[in-house]
């Protein structure tokens, strides 16, 4: 199964890249855009047919390596197939 992970800076932490992109969007006319946050997207194939087990393992991977809980949050979605 495939686990898709999104890691973003925690709310309240200044996201300097997000700010730069937000300013750029305003300057090209998208003036209503706010709170741009930039994160990382990570995909993994995990060898199991059990969606719940894949979710647990992906959560564990996120806590141990893919995210740093001091500054980041993560979200995992699990999909069928490769």
């Amino acid at each position: 199964m495939k686990a898709k992970v999104t890691v973003t800076l925690r709310e309240g932490i200044l996201d300097t890249q997000g700010k730069a992109v937000e300013h750029a969007l305003h300057s090209i006319g998208f003036t209503g855009v706010k709170n741009v946050r930039i994160g990382k997207h990570i995909e993994m194939d995990i060898d199991s047919a059990d969606a719940a087990a894949v979710q647990r393992q992906a959560d564990d991977i996120c806590r141990k390596l893919l995210s740093n809980p001091v500054m980041e949050d993560f979200r995992v979605t699990v999909e069928e197939g490769k």
Binding site: L9, I13, T16, Q17, N68, V70, M71
Partner: peptide, 16 residues
């Protein structure tokens, strides 16, 4: 900081 021997984290410079 990553291995928790010290607290906190180092983020991208404010100026990028």
């Amino acid at each position: 900081t990553e291995c928790h021997l010290l607290p906190g984290a180092l983020l991208m410079n404010e100026s990028r």
